[in-house]
């Protein structure tokens, strides 16, 4: 499996191909949402909604063989695309790896100016929640 760093490099080069064309970039992000695993209907509940996002984002995580497996969904296509990027980078890794991860691809592709400040705050909340899950599993593993 590629490292967090490698996957981030991949994403950065994909976005480089799109260049400054904001329209294609947004369409691309929306298409990425299609990569998300189907989200279990019974998990689509209030307690799985990430606080701090304007749109609705559901996130759950399981521990599989000591690694964190995330599943997520959203009611907006752009947000789906964003979270699919995060999952692509962080999914199925050991908690300590996730906690250490420096997600610099977000800054490198200039995500802030692509999605605007409201959605950037939402993106930060998603990352925080993903790391919180990792922390919880790590604490459990070390107990």
């Amino acid at each position: 499996m590629s490292s967090i760093k490698d996957i981030q490099e991949e994403i950065v080069s994909e976005f480089e191909i799109l260049g400054d064309d904001k329209e294609s970039t947004i369409f691309y992000i929306m298409e990425l949402g299609g990569n998300l695993e189907a989200f279990p209907e019974n998990e689509r509940k209030e307690e799985n909604i990430i606080k701090g996002c304007q749109s609705k984002v559901w996130l759950i995580a399981d521990e599989v063989d000591g690694k964190v497996h995330y599943q997520a969904d959203s009611n907006t296509d752009i947000t789906k695309g964003l979270i699919s990027l995060l999952i692509r980078v962080l999914n199925d890794r050991r908690p300590e790896e996730i906690l250490k991860a420096d997600l610099d691809f977000i800054q490198r592709i200039g995500m802030g100016s692509i999605i605007g400040s409201q959605r950037s705050n939402g993106l930060a909340s998603m990352i925080k929640q993903m790391k919180l899950y990792a922390l919880a599993f790590q604490t459990k593993q070390n107990a």
Binding site: T25, M30, Q54, N75, T76, I115
Partner: peptide
Amino acid sequence: DMHPFDVGQMLDAK
């Protein structure tokens, strides 16, 4: 069934 945010953001890109 598109979310209005998405439509708004795509129009903004234009």
